[in-house]
Design a binder for these strands. Structure first.
Lengths: 115, 115
DNA sequence: TCCTCCTATTGACAATCATCGATGTGAGAT
DNA sequence: ATCTCACATCGATGATTGTCAATAGGAGGA
């Protein structure tokens, strides 16, 4: 994940487009895509990370180590996974990478989870 | 998971009660609980299993092997995980175990995932 | 230029997980 | 009692995952 200066990190986040879990039966491909996003959410550290980012608008990675109690490589690992799931996106400005929640992505997940 | 005859299988499903991911910051305990339920959902086979159960009202385990393309022990493994997450519940009648979606549980997850 | 700071990547390790074959269990049927 | 069927459990295995120390990359400042 090489981030150029000023470039938004918007990593391949598949649509989660049409059907939901309650519109049975869920297809294999749709299940695969939804499972991937849910796997990104299925970690307590990433849930709290997303919560922090969503609550503060913009957060740099260095401000996440202390509240989450994890090392810098681990934080980088988790931001990467959340970004790949389309849940957050990062912008590199100067030495810092600023992370923010992708608007509507969580709503997309909720919608895929049912009516 | 020993299921007695006629007894509903309702395995310890914590409340997911109050706060949501968007009400930052999410506490450690709440993140842990939510992550556990999301982990149960973060598998394509389990998503399709839940979809089948929700769509048909009541399904016995034997009717899941073919559409999901997994062995009987694997199906049993997945039903157990979904039941422990409070997403489905099983009732043993005769030789069969009938699974059905727990009403409102998925809505609880959606609510915990944001407004 | 060199130095410092922030972040991404690599490599390794322990833990967890999805899967299946083999076996155990318990209920109905003969 | 014995047989059969549906399901749970056990044991093993290959794959994935969360974590951190060490290292690399890249930007700003002196």
């Amino acid at each position: 994940m090489t981030i150029r200066q000023g470039a938004r990190v918007e990593l391949a986040a598949d649509g989660l487009c049409c059907s939901s879990v309650l519109e049975a039966p869920l297809g294999e491909a749709e299940a695969e895509g939804l499972a991937q996003v849910l796997a990104a959410l299925a970690d307590p550290v990433r849930l709290r990370l997303l919560s922090l980012v969503a609550g503060q608008g913009e957060v740099c990675s260095c401000d996440l180590e202390a509240p989450l109690g994890r090392s810098q490589p681990t934080i980088s690992h988790h931001t990467r996974i959340l970004a790949e799931a389309g849940l957050i996106s990062g912008e590199k400005r100067g030495k810092w990478t600023w992370w923010s929640a992708v608007p509507g992505r969580l709503a997309e997940v909720r919608r895929a989870l049912g009516a």
